[in-house]
Simulated scan of single mutants.
Amino acid sequence: MAVATILMVDDETEIIKLMEIYFTNENYRLLKASNGLEALELLEKNAVDLIVLDVMMPTMDGIEACMRIREKNHIPIIMLSAKSQDIDKISGLSVGADDYVTKPFSPLELVARIKALLRRVNHFQTTRKKNEDEIRIDGLVINQASHVVTIDEKIVKLTPREFAILLLLAQHAGKVLSMDQIYEQIWQDPIMESKNTVMVHIRKLREKLETNPQNPRYIKTVWGIGYKLEGESEVDHDV
């Protein structure tokens, strides 16, 4: 597992020195800043996994720094503040912070909050990557990374060429592709016997995908033009 880099922004050097001990024990890499402006400068030059950001600091306080950070990225942020009123917590969270810890705090509690937040972020990124690899159309799921196809959660075994045709149609779901277009994209050859070749592969695909190939649920024929893949598309793009 890669070492997480924590940027801690606080003008109280004793707090940073104390947390450095705990971060070292957790194998975290620590970057240190004493105000929001320094933090922004460090972010321009370093990859950071999580920010611990104090509210009350000179030059640029944590609230302004948080707003500036959120203009460019979504790095998880934990706010620190000596104030415990609900309005201060709301202010910190409303400008983009993910969590809030009140001073004085237990170093172990802060480490626990950091671990929990990093776990949530890692889980989200893993799930997002998985979703980006998948195209979902009305019970049909095509995983572009693993080349696994399922219909209503049942695996459908396809040849590499059948998978390529299905993926091409899915990537253009709802749009009609001519036999020539399909042939050119999949075979990467000059058009020769495109009509018969594509028709044979579409027939085999339907036999594997469709409950009733004569009345297909997915691959529709548009007479005189070509084929299209229908269904309510659930392709997962950036969130």
Rank of each mutant, 00 (worst) to 15 (best):
L166H: 05
L167W: 05
K154V: 03
L168I: 01
A170Y: 05
V176E: 04
I142L: 04
S146M: 09
E134R: 12
I186A: 07
K129S: 13
L167K: 06
Q188M: 14
Q144I: 00
M192L: 05
A164T: 08
N131D: 13
K195D: 08
Q171P: 07
A164N: 10
H172F: 02
M179V: 13
Q185K: 12
S194E: 15
L158Q: 12
V149M: 09
I155E: 12
R128V: 06
M192G: 13
V141E: 07
L168Y: 03
A173G: 07
E193N: 09
V148R: 02
V149L: 11
T159L: 10
P160D: 01
I186W: 02
K157T: 15
A164H: 07
N143I: 11
N131R: 11
A164F: 04
L177K: 07
E162T: 03
W187A: 11
A173L: 11
E184V: 12
E153T: 07
R136G: 10
I135K: 01
K175L: 08
L168W: 03
I182W: 04
N143V: 09
S178W: 01
D152T: 02
Y183V: 04
Q171N: 13
R136N: 12
I135H: 03
N143M: 14
S194C: 13
R161H: 11
K154H: 04
I182S: 03
E134N: 10
S178K: 01
D152K: 05
K129Y: 11
A164D: 10
K157Q: 15
E132A: 07
H172M: 04
K129L: 13
V141N: 10
I142H: 01
S146P: 08
T150I: 11
I142V: 09
S146Y: 12
E184A: 13
F163W: 02
T159V: 11
R161I: 14
K154A: 05
A173N: 14
I135W: 01
E162H: 05
D138C: 08
F163A: 06
G174N: 05
W187E: 15
D133L: 02
E132R: 11
M192R: 06
F163V: 01
V149F: 05
N131F: 12
I165E: 00
E153C: 02
E153N: 06
R161N: 11
G139L: 00
L169W: 06
L169M: 12
K157A: 15
N131S: 13
L166K: 04
L140V: 09
I191K: 11
S146R: 10
I142S: 01
I191G: 06
T159E: 10
Q181M: 09
I191C: 09
I135C: 02
S194Q: 12
D189H: 12
W187V: 14
R161V: 14
K154P: 02
I165C: 01
Y183C: 09
D152R: 06
E193C: 04
V148F: 01
G139R: 01
P190R: 05
L169C: 08
A164C: 04
S146H: 09
T159W: 01
